[in-house]
Design a protein around this nucleic acid. Structure first.
Lengths: 217, 217
DNA sequence: GCCATAGTTATCGTATACGATTTCGTACTT
DNA sequence: AAGTACGAAATCGTATACGATAACTATGGC
């Protein structure tokens, strides 16, 4: 058995659809027709329905009764709300996580940040954004409260569909970002109090949001 | 048609099961058998399945593949996590909401708090807890970010099943709580800065959690 | 007398089928 | 020519049916 972990067909359907949304095969506004997806995947509509409902609960798709599901786009307002929410929960998660981060994790994070710095030369927004997630994951992943961690993951998920291009819109922000990362690491290393770390982490994300907003206005 | 607003059967099933969990008909650990619920409600299992999945996404039920769903209990750890999460998101929601609260809403909140104070005489934990939710709802309901608001609602939902008795365990906390409410109102009235309000709201909830924890240890 | 194993039952997972609702196109009326 | 009403096609919502999985029970061997 090479594919033990696949689980139920609902699960497979969930993974498949989610993957296509994240990788951009299904773009925002795309009409998700149950029957068609079911046929593509090779099974019936029932598991697909469940998968869609789960994605709806996570906010990745919008569902309208008797009409159908569409990939929920991120209009600027939606982006703002999501980022703001993420700034709050991620800030909290990072603060709670900080005391539990050992020195090897710090080193890993610093290495990732170094890669980001190098990446600034011949700037690749997609790669930069991936590294950015890696960096922050290291910081908040030790958060002992699974609920908060779950909220952080959901936030990242919601951004996933446009995540690949976040820094495309605000290239100038990238350098600041790398600097703030280092500052954040030093706060954690020096065992700064939770409130300070939370504020810094929240502010870091809020700054990215503001940078984005200033390009559109 | 006297029941226009009921919507789909999935929705009805969702509402029905959720109601029974909240009101305590289905206690934590209760085994939710799809076929039985379907029969009770008078329709087939398919809509019930979807309802259960939604409740799972909200954390009200736990689902195990090929085994079934049970009402997710709140062991002390779970309670701690939920309260901590709620303290963070509710604090943020209250701070964001504060500038938008007009004087009539303040007056309403104050009236509710007055009721709570009266309620202290011949203490009724259930009524007190209901009023407590009313009070806080007034404060955070103006939060302009729907995602955060949604997280707050989910948090309250998770607590719903044991909410009716929260203050039964910590009767001493009730008086402090009323005092802190008034302090919170004054902060909002005086247009205190967001950070101050957020801290106060968060601390208020954290204090309830600590009071609860001190009874068990 | 206890443990292991096979059979049974309860319950879930998925497929298929059909009725319900919405949407879109077309023809008819003004 | 524009608007409305009717009808057809697409899609969703739910029911029923059956196969799959896991918990339970009883029986046999040690």
């Amino acid at each position: 058995m090479t594919e033990t972990a696949v689980g139920s067909k609902s699960q497979q359907a969930y993974d498949a659809v989610k993957a296509r949304i994240v990788e951009g095969t299904y773009t925002p506004g795309y009409r998700l027709v149950l029957a068609k997806i079911a046929e593509d995947l090779g099974f019936s509509v029932v598991p697909v329905r469940e998968a869609i409902r789960r994605l709806e609960a996570e906010g990745l798709v919008k569902f309208e009764r008797n009409v159908g599901a569409t990939v929920s786009g991120i209009d600027p307002t939606e982006y703002l709300y999501t980022m703001q929410t993420l700034s709050i929960v991620e800030g909290a998660a990072t603060a709670l996580s900080a005391p539990l981060i050992d020195s090897v994790a710090i080193a890993r994070a610093r290495a990732v940040n170094e890669e980001m710095r190098e990446c600034l030369e011949h700037f690749d927004p997609v790669r930069f954004t991936t590294l950015n997630q890696d960096f922050h994951s290291i910081l908040f992943e030790h958060c002992p409260n699974p609920h908060i961690l779950d909220l952080v993951h959901r936030g990242w998920n919601r951004l996933a569909s446009l995540r690949s291009s976040t820094f495309r819109f605000v290239p100038g922000r990238a350098q600041e970002s790398v600097r703030e990362h280092e500052a954040l690491l030093q706060l954690i290393e020096s065992a700064a109090d939770a409130d300070t770390i939370e504020k810094a982490a929240r502010q870091h994300r809020a700054a990215t949001l503001e940078a984005y907003l200033s390009t559109t206005t």
